[in-house]
Computed example of a mutant assay.
Amino acid sequence: MRRLSAGAVVAYAALAVYAVVSLYPFAWMVSGAFKDRLEILEGGHLIPRRPTLATLADTWSRLHFFDYFLNSLKVTGLTVLGVLVVYSLAGYAFAMVDFPGRRFVFWFFVALLFVPSITVLLPLTILENKLNILGTHTGLILPFVNGTAPLAVLMLTAAFRAVPHDLHDAATADGAGELRIFWRVYLPLARPTLITIGVLTAVPTWNEYVLTRVSLNDESRYTLPLALERLASGTVPSYNEIMAGSLILVVPVIVLFLALQRYFVNGLSGAVKN
């Protein structure tokens, strides 16, 4: 049996503490979703004494889940599609195509990682108002696609550079053009990275609140975070229903991550190695 060094023990202990601190609020949310209104006000205990599904059922009905779920699915799905299409092409260009100013443009994209998104909220709102897309789903999708640019370009460029150049030379010798080489050779080999970027794009887009709150006024276009806010803004908020709504909101994200976990881990490890 291998003995752990003192440094490893400290690192594992710190990670364990971090895991407990991170999971504790989530555990309370799950617990509250199965409590009735009286028990949630009593507090003091994590495990429900009188577990009930009535809170989830009532919240599901009040939240009008499917109406807002379709809006969230539309915004998230089109955002992920836009990110994968636009930045896979951009990443391939940065990795394989020699054009003037390539290094400058690439590092410009990377530098945008350090720009807080909140700083562009006001100019973005003004621009969307002038373009007549403020308050529409298009006005959400385009900024979300643009906001993912730095990370997506960085990861995809690294993934495409890791592909042996001999494959590109062989495909060129067979008469394939750049688009065909990109589609038939490089894109399949970058699948773990593409899935990783898809997950990293889908999760914050699904949970986005600030821009949607500023942009959307028509309730028929609300996404799930705004529907949850409306549920919580009652005169006397029901904390068990708020926790139930939060659980309903995060379940699709958890299912997505669990389904794609293997590809996600492979994509991250590949990006770190590159």
Rank of each mutant, 00 (worst) to 15 (best):
W183G: 10
L127Q: 14
F26W: 12
P237L: 08
P164N: 08
E219M: 08
G32V: 05
G177V: 01
L260I: 07
L124D: 12
V80L: 04
G267E: 03
Q261S: 12
E42I: 15
G44L: 08
F34H: 07
T212P: 11
L38F: 13
L78K: 06
Y12V: 09
V9Y: 08
R50L: 13
T59P: 06
P116R: 07
S61Y: 08
P150N: 03
Y24G: 03
N132L: 13
G270W: 08
F104K: 10
R180W: 04
L154Q: 05
A202T: 04
I40K: 08
P150S: 07
H64K: 12
A19R: 02
L134Y: 15
R213M: 11
S269C: 06
P25R: 01
V80P: 03
A93T: 12
V105Q: 12
T76Q: 05
E39M: 04
I197D: 09
A90G: 04
I40V: 15
F160P: 03
F65I: 05
N71I: 05
P48I: 11
S215H: 08
L78R: 04
V115I: 14
S238K: 14
V145N: 07
L127R: 12
H64D: 14
A152K: 03
V145E: 10
F108G: 14
R102G: 03
S22R: 00
W28A: 06
A173I: 14
Y68I: 02
I141C: 00
V250Y: 03
Y92M: 00
D218E: 09
F104Q: 10
A173H: 09
T201R: 05
L4A: 12
L247E: 01
W206M: 04
P51H: 04
G267Q: 01
V30C: 12
T196I: 06
E229L: 14
H168Y: 13
A13I: 04
